[in-house]
Nucleic acid binder design. Structure first.
Lengths: 146, 146
DNA sequence: TCATGTTGTAACAATAATAGTTACAACAAG
DNA sequence: CTTGTTGTAACTATTATTGTTACAACATGA
């Protein structure tokens, strides 16, 4: 299974905000034009980012901004905002047989390893900030500041 | 989104084989009784493990065995056998706008980070072998060898 | 030969998540 | 009051997962 496009859409939206704001008003329609999805999809994603205090959105007038500096927003923040709703990455089967020596101990044997694997993923995501991505982007586009 | 139960079912099945085989014939029905799922689900999973050369299954007579030693089967092997069919963990939106400086460079900026995060997950999975899990299980059940 | 138990696989249903879309009330500002 | 935007509801389509029944193919022993 794959992690949904919400995550990359969210990162894309944040990069748009970092790149264009505040020179241009970055609306859901503008972001949608860059990502090439329906504006409602962007609004849903921005809603999750707002919930996680990563962006602020102006009601009525329109336009989104970062709620904190790009250096203080990591990919893990974004991942947690749009993907993991407090849940585990690995999904376990519900009712292993407690009467079987394997079924009765499968959680004790496996849970720690799965948690460690998820932690490895999240640790790596936490090492990359939006500022890192912006620096790469600015390098590619020749933009000095945004 | 979560990684499907196929992965934990597969690990559970392999642990059953490691623990009970060859003293008992480990059939799909027997594994299903430990995992508490339908035997057909187990057969489908065993089919994927067989495809990946992790187990052998006796047609007709019944019963599964490890195709190599438990020390030579890692969680990454299992993960790849049942989950990632050569695909990426992170799912990207299809058509970023190439005319937008962000949309046109989003892959160049983000792909490497996503690959690194997936690699971190897989590297951690590769560090744990079925033998490690079996040792934990034997410790819990007081079994010296199986 | 035949009965038995098993595997492999097809077929189908139920459920859930994702993603796209239309529609519209609420809002802010000129 | 007009305009443009947000937030959200509602609905659809698609896909993946999971559970289930059914059955042909197979190996073995009686």
């Amino acid at each position: 299974m794959q992690i949904s496009t919400r995550f990359t859409v969210a990162v894309h939206a944040l990069l748009c905000i970092a790149y264009f704001s505040p020179e241009r008003k970055v609306t859901s329609g503008f972001i949608a034009g860059s990502v090439k999805v329906n504006p409602v999809v962007v609004r849903r994603t921005l809603g999750q980012l707002k919930e996680a205090d990563l962006v602020t959105v102006e009601a009525g007038v329109g336009g989104a901004s970062l709620a904190r500096s790009a250096a203080e927003i990591t990919l893990l923040d974004v991942y947690r905002a749009v993907e993991s709703t407090g849940e585990r990455l690995f999904n376990f089967h519900e009712n292993p047989n407690p009467a079987c020596p394997v079924g009765g101990n499968i959680h004790a044997v496996l849970d720690g390893e799965l948690a460690a694997a998820q932690a490895a993923l999240e640790d790596r995501l936490a090492q990359t900030s939006l500022a890192d991505l912006y620096a790469k982007l600015a390098d590619l586009t020749g933009t000095s500041a945004g």
